[in-house]
Amino acid sequence: MSKTIKATADDIWKNKVEKINSELFTLTYGSVVAQLCRDFHNDYVQVNAQLERMGFNIGIRLIEDFLARTGLGRCQSFKETAEVVSKIGFKIFLNVVPLVTNWSGDGKQFSLVLEENPLAEFVELPQDDKASRALWYSNVLVGVLKGALQMVQLEVDVAFVKDVLRGDDATEIRLKLIKVLRDEVPAGED
């Protein structure tokens, strides 16, 4: 990818982003997930749904912060969106740069592969099979991506495909563009 994107992202990360201790962040997220599991009595489907909702509410606000910090406008193509999300978005907020891979033939689906996941450091899922089959630990990321992209008029279906915590070799999120939403016009103009 071009040097300018990487340089911009590094510059913003170094200068304009307030930093906190990553262990504090990881432990806070961990206790949120553990508490949700306790509250829903280990109904992992519900826990996933809650995490996604929380992520959605975060995402709709995060996108404004992101656009204000970077000064970017709307992306012109889905490919551009993918690059901006992975190289600038993830870099600014989590200091990781996932790989954009597995583009589908029509250019409407792609995967983000995370080599390291700061949300899940030192986490071991409970030993029962249910957890490792049903729980997506970092599901909040799914909600964040959905919410943020919806605010820029892109309706995207986001889901985890693989997770290192479940024993897979990498953490992978799949994004599918469903449609581009229309901007609203004042009554009487249309």
Partner: peptide, 17 residues
Amino acid sequence: PFNEDTSVTDPLAIHRK
């Protein structure tokens, strides 16, 4: 007009609009 090649290499050119 939207130019596929330049947009991917230089998406920071938002003032195109």
